[in-house]
Design a protein around this nucleic acid. Sequence first.
DNA 1: CCATTACTAGAACGATCGTTATAGGAAGTC
DNA 2: GACTTCCTATAACGATCGTTCTAGTAATGG
Lengths: 185, 185
Amino acid sequence: MAGRPVDHEHRAALLDAAVDHAVEHVFSELSWRSVAAALGVSTTTLVHHFGTKEQMLEAILGRLRERLVAASRELAGEGADLATTARAFWAWSSDDHRRPTFRLFFAVYGRAVQSPETYTGFLEQLGADWIAILREAQGPDVDAAVATRRATVVVATLRGLLLDLLATGDRARVDAAAEEFLAGL
Amino acid sequence: MAGRPVDHEHRAALLDAAVDHAVEHVFSELSWRSVAAALGVSTTTLVHHFGTKEQMLEAILGRLRERLVAASRELAGEGADLATTARAFWAWSSDDHRRPTFRLFFAVYGRAVQSPETYTGFLEQLGADWIAILREAQGPDVDAAVATRRATVVVATLRGLLLDLLATGDRARVDAAAEEFLAGL
DNA sequence: CCATTACTAGAACGATCGTTATAGGAAGTC
DNA sequence: GACTTCCTATAACGATCGTTCTAGTAATGG
């Protein structure tokens, strides 16, 4: 009956390498051939493991989301309040080492708002995860509706500031604005 | 000497029609052929008037920015304070009629953060225009650095909320968050 | 050993892309 | 009228794309 068993580890390793490559390159220029060349395999190998290009991109983004959410949950720590958590979020996401990652993040956003069929899952889940983390940071005593409002505002502001930083590179102005916002929490 | 004179009006009319088409379609799918078909001309006509595809896209975005800045300046009105102006901005930009426009806006953002060579002019000018409008709304008595910080925060928050609204479509939550933010100004 | 399945690679197909000849009519000056 | 420049269109070129075809090798169960 059964022939050669499926090598799940190899697929996972390929996916992780593909995520690393995607983060460091332009999202709209990802192709079977470019990814295959970067990973040292042929396009047919990728096709065999991921199916269609769209499915490969979804797999890449899903894996990226896992990384981001895990890192975000660590940030929140235990018992930190909203202001502290928000400050940690800003320091983490605006770190220069995270620039390629968030560049990809906003590239996907730009794609998703015009083509909702794809990539919205990635954004909705990631946005919901972040809002949930910031809701929990407010403790159980805060009214649920109020907590959601505040979490939505914090996520939106930090995301907008990050977009400003990535587009203009004006760190002094954006950091000052972030401090102004965070101090008011 | 001189032959047939250049018809600047015709080029302007083509550009305006191209902007209308770009707003209603997916940015990454714009091509010579698709735009030409929508405008009822041949691709060579567009090439003749705009040069390269990149130059056509820049011309389209430049014209779009003119429209947006003109509309934004009207919004600010005369003598309105920061909170009032910010509220008007939110009402205007989150209006359902403006959805295609801001979808394109964020699509360009997504492209620009990964390919700074192009489109950054569009974003830097538009961002600077909006921040300037919100700086002026704070009056001449506010310290310049403080006014810049506050304007940056307001633009970032509204942009982040708009991104949330376009990506999730959850108007109730986002509108509540916007109200929370605007009430605190 | 053999049947079966997993995996990989090279080559090709059909489509679309930006761009470029090539060519002909339209609108002005002399 | 001649001449020049503007404007437009059809057709094709070369490149890249996602995908498929074909074929061969590796690893398991019987």
